[in-house]
Each structure stands twice: as structure tokens, then as C-alpha cells.
């Protein structure tokens, strides 16, 4: 459902993504890992065109992301995104954060949107915070609201960019649990994360990136126990030994 073919991206002279070929199928959970600056966020952000690709082809559900004729807002309805720093709207309550896009983009009534919002808040385990403002929530709670906000659009894919790396350690578990449940329900997910437990438990595939290239793709067990690439081995030893 997401297909990169020979995708390149430059920031000025800087070559961030190099000849990326990658296919993500419906229902798959793909975890992207790699050293800082290797282009993981850029790869993810190209999928919903927060960044534009310089050349190559990128399609989501057969629709070309870069094509001028593609209505980007329509495409984005189907792609939820969760950020490292949540980016909840601070001037809106939790409920309003979640209902905004369903009301304005999908044209749902307030009642309908609120029902959906409550459903997903319940699912991520913080229904009681519906009336709170983001600043009144812990980091873990905020990230769970951000996930509910993404889900309320009923997207076909969810993108996660290091969803737990801004969290205090004791809150990482609650967010990962929500993501695991989502994975088990069959959501298509592309997740940039170094959480090995999560990857081993629910990922179908690990994509290892280094200096703008996809160096290795493997199932988690193989990847973590026996990475083919020297770079991957080096990287794993570094994240495991700190």
C-alpha cells in the first residue's frame, strides 16, 4: 500500500534519501531504525508529503504522492501521524483536539465526532481526560491522545516518528501497549523507534537505514540476532550497550 521506488531526496546539496526502494503492505507493521541523521524521519515524512521527494516514485494506495493532480488533503485523511513531541493543540481540550479534523475534513457533526473521539479515548485508556487541556496531562497521556487523534480519522496507515523518545521511562510502556494493541488489530504501521521489545513483539519487518540508504530489511528475530550488515551490527551493539 506504500511503495517507494528509486526515491531520492536532497536538502540543497545534501543527499538525505538515496535510491530508496521499499514496499509496505496492508496490515504490515514495519519498524525503521538507524543512526541519528540517517534519514528515518525524512523517509516517514515523505509518505504524507510533509517533505517532498526530489525524484523517484512514491505511491500510497496506488496514488502518486508527489503528483500535482493529487489532492494532498484527501490523501492525508488516510494517513495518521504521531510525532515525537505530540504536537497537541494547546488551546483545545483533549476532545476538541480529536474532533477538529473529523469535523472540518470529513464533515462529521459534532455529536458524531465526539462519539468517535470518546471511543478512541476509551481505547487508549484516558476517557476521563476528555475535558482536560494538553498541559494538564503527563507526556504519556499526551501521546496517547495524539494517537487517538490520528485514529479518529480512521486512517488506513499510521506513521509514528519516535513516539516514545520524549517520554520519561515509566511512561513508555503505556504508549507502547496502545501501539501493540493497534498492531494486533491489523493496522498498517510504519514506526521509527529504537524500542526493541516493541519491534520483536509486533513488527513484521525491520528496515535498517544508514546515511540515507535502506541497508537491510529483515524479520525482527533475524535482524536482532544476526544482522547481515556490518553497519547494522555496529549500530545494534551501540544501542544495546548503553
Amino acid at each position: 500500500m506504500i511503495e517507494f521506488s528509486k526515491v531520492n531526496k536532497f536538502y540543497g546539496d545534501f543527499h538525505v534519501l538515496k535510491d530508496i526502494n521499499l514496499t509496505i503492505n496492508k496490515g504490515e507493521v514495519v519498524v525503521v531504525i538507524g543512526p541519528s541523521g540517517s534519514g528515518k524521519s525524512t523517509l516517514l515524512r515523505c509518505i504524507n508529503r510533509l517533505e517532498t521527494i526530489s525524484d523517484g516514485g512514491l505511491t500510497v494506495n496506488g496514488v502518486s504522492v508527489g503528483d500535482k493532480k493529487t489532492n494532498i488533503n484527501t490523501l492525508r485523511r488516510n494517513i495518521g501521524m504521531v510525532f515525537q513531541h505530540f504536537h497537541l493543540y494547546p488551546h483545545k481540550t483533549v476532545l476538541q483536539n480529536i474532533t477538529l479534523a473529523p469535523m472540518k475534513v470529513l464533515g462529521q457533526s459534532q455529536k458524531e465526532a465526539e462519539e468517535t473521539a470518546r471511543h478512541y479515548l476509551d481505547k487508549v485508556g484516558i476517557l476521563e481526560k476528555a475535558g482536560s487541556y494538553p498541559s494538564q496531562l503527563s507526556g504519556g497521556q499526551q501521546q496517547r491522545v495524539a494517537i487517538a487523534r490520528g485514529l479518529a480519522m480512521k486512517p488506513e496507515v499510521m506513521l509514528f516518528d519516535e513516539p516514545t523518545s520524549a517520554l520519561d521511562p515509566e511512561m513508555i510502556g503505556e504508549v507502547l501497549d496502545v501501539m501493540k494493541a493497534l498492531a494486533r488489530e491489523g493496522m498498517t504501521m510504519v514506526v521509527v523507534t529504537h524500542e526493541m521489545g516493541f519491534a520483536r513483539e509486533v513488527a513484521d519487518r525491520i528496515v535498517f537505514m544508514d546515511e540515507g540508504r535502506v541497508l537491510e530489511e529483515a524479520v525482527p528475530a533475524d535482524f536482532y540476532e544476526n544482522p547481515r550488515e556490518e553497519r547494522a551490527r555496529l549500530f545494534l551493539s551501540r544501542i544495546l550497550n548503553h
Binding site: L50, N73, R76, F83
Partner: peptide, 12 residues
Amino acid sequence: GQMEAARSSGLS
């Protein structure tokens, strides 16, 4: 990030 979050949810 506010603009990015809003745009990525499909808002114009």
C-alpha cells in the same frame, strides 16, 4: 509542529 500536525490530519 502545530502546522505539521494540523496539515497531516488533512486540514487545508
